[in-house]
Design a protein around this nucleic acid. Structure first.
Lengths: 231, 231
DNA sequence: CACCGTACTATACACTGTACGTTAGGAACT
DNA sequence: AGTTCCTAACGTACAGTGTATAGTACGGTG
C-alpha cells in the first residue's frame, strides 16, 4: 500500500516541518494531521517521536531557541542584557509562533537552558546576588514575552483589514466625555503598539531601575573588575 | 419538542456561563457546545448573540475588566500606577482565563477603555507628555501581561504532578559543566516564578526608571498643580 | 533463514466550530 | 381577534481536530 520506507522520519525533520507549517499557515491553523500530510505519512506516525502535540510544541520551541546568538562577550553588562533581550524579541518577531510557545508551556530543553545560562551569567558577573539575578532574569524574560506577544498580536490585527476596521471604529465611537484621555491619545496609542522604540523604551526603563538600585546599594558588592588606574 | 421559551437567553447570561465554565473546566477545555449544553440549549442558539467564538471571548474579557476597581484618587502617581497594575494582576490570578484573553485578542470594549482611561489619566496628570504617557501605558500593560501570564502558567504546571516531576528532573539533569549558573540558581529560579515579591520587583524597576527619567528632564514640564505656598 | 522489535498504517471515537435551512413564539398591526 | 412578520432557538450536517487501539510489514540481529 505504498508504505513509506522505514527511517525517512526523524524528530528533527518533524520539528522543521511543523515550524514551516506554523509560519506559512499560521500558528492556530497548525495541526498534527497537517504535518503528517506534508510528510506524506499517517497522523499516527508522529507519535513514534512525540508523545503528544504539546511535546512537539516543546521541541519546536527549543529548536527556535537554538537560533539565538550567544551573548556578546566584550560589552558592559547593560548592553549585554540589551543584546539578549533584543535578539529574543527579534527571534519572536521572525517566528511569531514562538510567542505562543513560550507563553503556553514552561521552559525546558537544552537550547532554552543555554539562553538562560547566558543571561544569568551576565547578571551574576555584573555583581547581582543570586536572588536578585534570578528575579531580574524572570523580570526581563517576562517583559520581553509580554511586550513582544502584544506587538505580534497587534501586528496581526493590523494585517486583517476587517478586524482592523472594526477596531478603529470601536475606538472612534468612544465618547470623548467618558474617555477623554483615551480619545486624546488614540494616535499615540496606535503608534506605541510595537516597534523598536516602544520595546527599547520599556527595556531602558528596566535597566535604568537596575542601575539605580545598584548605585544606591553602593559599589561594595561589585566583584572582580576593579579599575585600579582610577586610584 | 421541549423548546426553551423565547427570551431565556441573553448576552450577559451567556458570558457569565462561559466564564463559569472556563474557570471550572479550564480555559482550554472551554467550548461553545459546553456552554450551550450548560444553558440547556442547542449550540447554534449562541450565534444569535455572538458572531463567533472570538466574539464571545471579547465579551468575557470586557466583562472581567469591568471588575477592576477605579484608580485610588488620593495618592501619589507612582502609587496609583502600582495600584492599577497590582489590581490587574490580582484579577488575572483570580480568573486565569483573563491572561489568555488579553494576550490573544486586541483590546476593545467599554470596560477595557475605562481601565485604559484610568491609567492614562494618572500618567497625564503626573506630567507625562502624550507620547511618553502612551509608551508608558503600553510598557506597564505588557509587563503585567507577561509577568502574570508566566506566573499563571508556572502555577498550573506546579499543580500537575506529572508535568512538574518531568520539569524538575529535566532541570536536575542539566550538566553543571555546561550550565553552571542555571544549576547554581535553580532554587532561586524556582522561587521567582511568581508571587507578589517577584511581581513588585519588576514593577518597582519600571517605576524607578520612570522617576529617574522624570528627575533628569527637570520639573519644568509638570503641568497644573503648582504649589504656590512654596514661593 | 527465521525472528522480533519497531516504524508506520488503518480504523475509530469523541470532540470541535459553524454554515445552512427550518420552525415556532411573541409582538404589532389591521 | 386574526393575521403577519420578525427572530430566537432548533436540527442537521460538514470538515476538521487529537489520539487510543489494533494491525502490518520492514530492517537489523540471531
Amino acid at each position: 500500500m505504498a508504505r513509506t520506507p522505514r527511517n525517512t522520519l526523524s524528530a528533527d525533520l518533524i520539528v522543521r516541518t511543523a515550524l514551516e507549517l506554523m509560519e506559512s499557515k499560521g500558528t492556530d491553523a497548525f495541526s498534527l494531521r497537517g504535518v503528517a500530510a506534508e510528510l506524506g505519512v499517517g497522523p499516527m506516525a508522529l507519535y513514534t517521536y512525540f508523545r503528544n502535540k504539546d511535546d512537539l510544541y516543546d521541541a519546536v520551541r527549543d529548536h527556535l531557541m537554538g537560533l539565538l546568538p550567544a551573548v556578546p562577550a566584550d560589552a558592559a553588562w547593560p548592553d549585554q542584557v540589551r543584546a539578549v533581550c533584543r535578539s529574543l524579541r527579534l527571534l519572536m518577531l521572525q517566528h511569531p509562533c514562538l510567542a505562543q510557545l513560550l507563553a503556553s508551556r514552561p521552559l525546558s530543553g537544552h537550547e532554552t537552558a543555554r539562553v538562560a545560562e547566558g543571561l544569568l551569567g551576565v547578571l551574576r558577573s555584573a555583581g547581582f546576588d543570586p536572588e536578585t539575578a534570578a528575579r531580574t532574569h524572570t523580570t526581563l524574560f517576562t517583559y520581553v514575552l509580554g511586550a513582544t506577544t502584544w506587538e505580534i498580536q497587534m501586528a496581526a490585527e493590523r494585517r486583517d483589514p476587517e478586524a482592523w476596521r472594526r477596531l478603529r471604529t470601536s475606538m472612534e465611537s468612544l465618547s470623548a466625555r467618558d474617555f477623554p484621555t483615551v480619545v486624546e491619545l488614540a494616535p499615540e496609542l496606535a503608534r506605541t503598539t510595537g516597534g523598536n522604540d516602544q520595546f527599547n523604551y520599556g527595556l531602558d526603563l528596566l535597566l535604568a531601575g537596575l542601575t539605580k538600585n545598584k548605585e544606591e546599594e553602593g559599589y561594595s558588592e561589585v566583584p572582580g573588575e576593579v579599575f585600579e588606574e582610577e586610584i
